[in-house]
């Protein structure tokens, strides 16, 4: 039994080490100019594959991703800028095709809500802590003075506690 689990552990470790996340590069036609190829890849890294949704077209083996990669390469080779290529794709597939959505009226909530929730949480925490603070301050104030009767009662209790025979 122990042998089996040791083997299993070894296999898991091997899997961890040998399946390292090397950036998958598919056998596409690459651009001759390495700088352009680099740029095409950078752009492709931020284009969503519409078939596999949470992969970039650089990571996806889908047919459509392949086509989009070659379009990006073509346009880079034709000297188009990143913004122009984004525009080309967005006009066909919408903002969704960009893995990093642009900040504009339609995506306002998407971008602002995390900061809003963070600040809202901070505000409630502030209220909570202040209320707690107020409560303990109030408690302090209440415990400070003793009324006359209380003082008498306390003295009585204290004197009762003294054992008989002990010197006063």
């Amino acid at each position: 039994m122990r042998l089996v689990s040791a083997n299993l552990l070894g296999m898991l470790l091997a899997a961890l080490f040998f399946v390292s996340p090397v950036g998958a590069v598919f056998n596409d036609e690459r651009l001759k100019d390495p700088a352009q190829e680099e740029k095409a890849r950078e752009i492709s890294d931020n284009i969503r594959c519409l078939v596999c949704q949470n992969q970039s077209i650089m990571d996806s083996n889908a047919d459509l991703a392949k086509d989009l990669r070659s379009i990006v390469r073509e346009q880079v080779a034709a000297g188009k800028s990143e913004a122009e290529i984004h525009e080309f794709l967005v006009s066909r597939y919408g903002d969704w095709v960009l893995l990093n959505p642009p900040f504009k009226a339609r995506t306002f909530i998407l971008w602002v809500s995390p900061a809003f929730v963070f600040l809202l949480g901070g505000y409630f925490m502030f209220l909570f802590l202040r209320r707690k603070n107020d409560k303990s301050a109030e408690a302090d104030r209440k415990s400070a003075p003793l009324t006359e009767e209380e003082q008498v009662e306390l003295n009585k209790l204290l004197s009762e506690g003294e054992r008989p025979g002990e010197p006063k």
């Binding site: 519409l50 086509d67 066909r92 597939y93």
Partner: peptide
């Protein structure tokens, strides 16, 4: 055949 018209139409499946 090349799928380019499809891409112009925003076809993804």
């Amino acid at each position: 055949q090349k799928g380019r018209v499809g891409i112009d139409f925003g076809v993804y499946g």
